[in-house]
Design a protein around this nucleic acid. Structure first.
Length: 499
RNA sequence: GGCGGCAUACCCAAGUGGUAAGGGAGCGGUCUGCAAAACCGUAAUUCACCGGUUCAAAUCCGGUUGCCGCCUCCA
């Protein structure tokens, strides 16, 4: 079964067939850089990052483009508020964007064009539209004439009549039709501007994606992604501009991710109910946020809450705990080879599951990127592996057993990696998680280590009263101890454990 | 007003015609000096409700109810 993707344009799942065999041209609407990103942006970035990784793993040569909108009214307003230049605002928030995305493990796209570097291409595109009579100048602005594009509304599934009947359409004296949208805006004195055939001004929002995708990916390309809220008017307008200008189909597959909700309501800047990525990462491991996002299908809404995040973190700890056990107790000698029969003899189910993971994982992902199901398969292998490890008690595994366990662990890491998960070494993850949580409790790591050492001495002389007293004391401060033959590990209690 | 989406156990969630994945929480057990972690066992005769199609429906069709989104900047 080849890759199936849900196409917003056809409103159904379709077999994915790229324009040119073996190559995928992929464009995702990036952010307007006037503020810090919130977790809605994180979801979009993570979802398309996984799609990008999966396409590459499938052997496609992918050209992934994600733009920065670095000129727009909000940026100008922000610059005016801070008495600064719009370019400083844009640069600052692009830097912040990279910090957030890098922290989340989101890969950099192949190309990241900035709108202001492509003004000539936009002007050229607008000129073409004017020459064709699909766009007109009105005052110092240029508008797109929606009535001249018969397919207008095909992405959003509405007709012009439907939309005109809507109560919210505002009449604008510059527009011939209230649904006409701006391609070029004349600048007011003091505002940033570029010279154009229609006087000094700046591009409208929609035109940049048409101009840049056209230049970098061609007139028709394979995938265009973005949040559901961009379907109308942004993507609808991109189609209108692009197809009116080129006369060929703009995009073959439109992919849209669902929203992040807070208390079942859309999180958005305008509602003010948003959390920034950097705020969340103060207390939450980045892979936790990734697992949380990918535990739901990308098109469904997801409700964000501290509890939901904690649940995801518990699951992530489970994976890493198993990997940690493999690392310490099942170190396989890479020079030693074993026959399948020897491995099957150790644990037939584990051997089977390890071998079938690729198939199950691919089947899930091929079904419109069903990451939730793919993660379910990862958990199944994790549980089987952990069960196998437990059979040996605290002993180290040797020979075929160690080999089988190591192989299962490697399969887990490899597939989780396509989702951008389990990218760390287990001890590194434990350390990072502990650091995040230690930060919240106010205890120092050194103090904990010292207490553990005192407890170790007490346990050595079988003074369990003292040993337990120390453990209780630490627990009261949120520190949980885990004894093992390799020594005592410690971690900070997750917040929901306190109840 | 127009258009669209969703409703699966205590919670999150996959499943789109063949007899309910997975995670979290809870409870019982194993292990442990005692714990923690981990493992084992345990939960929906049922998928909002009503009706229909079918040998067979959570999955398809019609209706009802509830929630959400888009139509305005928005991932």
């Amino acid at each position: 079964m080849p890759l199936q993707v849900y196409n917003t344009l056809s409103k159904q799942k379709e077999a994915f067939v790229p324009l040119e065999p073996g190559k995928v041209r992929f464009y995702v609407c990036g952010v307007t850089v006037y503020d810090y990103c919130h977790i809605g942006h994180a979801r979009s970035a993570i979802v398309f990052d996984v799609i990008y990784r999966y396409l590459k793993r499938g052997g496609y040569e992918v050209t992934y483009v994600r733009n920065f909108t670095d000129i727009d009214d909000k940026i100008i307003r922000r610059a005016n508020e801070t008495q600064g230049d719009y370019r400083e605002i844009a640069d600052r928030f692009i830097a912040a964007f990279y910090q957030d995305m890098d922290a989340l493990g989101v890969l950099r796209p192949d190309l990241e064009p900035r709108a202001t570097d492509h003004i000539p291409q936009m002007i050229e595109l607008i000129e073409t539209l004017v020459a064709k009579g699909v766009a007109y100048q009105s005052g110092t602005d240029v508008y797109f004439r929606v009535e001249r594009f018969p397919d207008y509304g095909k992405l959003a599934g509405r007709s012009l009549d439907d939309m005109l009947a809507g109560a919210r359409v505002q009449v604008d004296e510059h527009k011939q039709n209230p649904l006409d949208f701006v391609l070029w805006k004349g600048s007011k004195p003091g505002e940033p501007f570029w010279d154009s055939p229609w006087g000094p001004g700046r591009p409208g929002w929609h035109i940049e994606c048409s101009a840049m995708s056209n230049q970098l990916l061609g007139r028709t390309f394979d995938i265009h992604g973005g949040g559901k809220d961009l379907i109308f008017p942004h993507h609808e307008n991109e189609i209108a501009q692009s197809e009116a200008a080129t006369g060929v189909p703009f995009v073959r597959y439109w992919l849209h991710n669902g929203f992040v909700n807070i208390n079942n309501e859309k999180m958005s800047k305008s509602l003010g109910n948003f959390f920034t990525i950097r705020d969340i990462l103060e207390t939450t491991h980045p892979e936790t946020l990734r697992l949380f996002v990918l535990s739901k299908h990308y098109r469904s809404p997801v409700d964000f809450s501290d509890e939901a995040l904690q649940e995801a973190e518990r699951g992530l700890e489970r994976f890493y705990n198993t990997l940690a056990t493999v690392a310490t107790r099942a170190t396989a000698d890479p020079n030693q080879a074993f026959a399948d029969s020897a491995l099957t003899a150790q644990d037939g189910e584990l051997f089977e599951r390890t071998g079938h993971l690729a198939e199950l994982f691919t089947a899930a992902m091929d079904n419109d990127f069903n990451t939730a199901q793919a993660i379910g398969h990862l958990f199944e292998l994790q549980r089987t592996l952990q069960r196998f490890l437990d059979r040996f008690g605290q002993k180290k595994l040797k020979g075929a057993a160690a080999h089988l366990a190591a192989q299962a662990g490697a399969a887990l890491v490899e597939h989780a990696g396509v989702l951008g998960l389990l990218k760390r070494r287990p001890e590194q993850f434990a350390l990072e998680l502990r650091r995040l949580r230690v930060h919240q409790t106010g205890i120092s790591e050194a103090a904990v280590e010292a207490a553990i050492e005192r407890r170790r001495e007490a346990r050595e002389r079988k003074d369990f009263a003292e040993s337990d007293r120390i453990r209780e004391e630490l627990l009261a401060q949120g520190v949980i101890l885990e004894d093992s033959p390799q020594g005592t590990r410690w971690r900070i209690r997750a917040r929901h454990d306190e109840a």
